[in-house]
Amino acid sequence: MTEEVEELDLQFQTGCSTKAHKILKKISGKEDKDTDDENLTNEKAPFDSMNEAYMFALMLGLSRGQKKGWKKRVNYANFGQTVAKKVDIISIMKHIGLPEDVANQDAMETAIQEYATWGLEQLGESKYGDDDYRIYDLLNNSED
């Protein structure tokens, strides 16, 4: 297994469900923007960038062991170049996730996107009002 893990490549186009993608834009204050480089459109947004939000959602799904698939997938970015630039994601997945998540390249890519989709949809539900999200209540029952 060790050898297989080391061969996995993080340079792939990651994404999530259409619904999760909308949430991703909202929670990072980029609702009306096309890229992640521009300023916030919503000052209440909990995340500064979509990369941070995606990473957070992925870890949320991973820490809870929850995945969600999709009917229609939206491509978001190159995972290795944007989301997980300096993080040893494979190692984290190996130790916190399921063995099959890192069994091969396809399994890993699917797992990452399914964890992130679940996490984003959860974030979308932790709403107190218009674009007013709360993170603590969502995390209070998480692994920590």
Binding site: P46, D48, F56, L58, M59, H95, I96, I135, L139
Partner: peptide
Amino acid sequence: DRRMLIKNGFWKVLVKKGI
């Protein structure tokens, strides 16, 4: 402040126990 907290690797809190 919340965005800054999240920016500085707040996601690590989620996997703290697992790690």
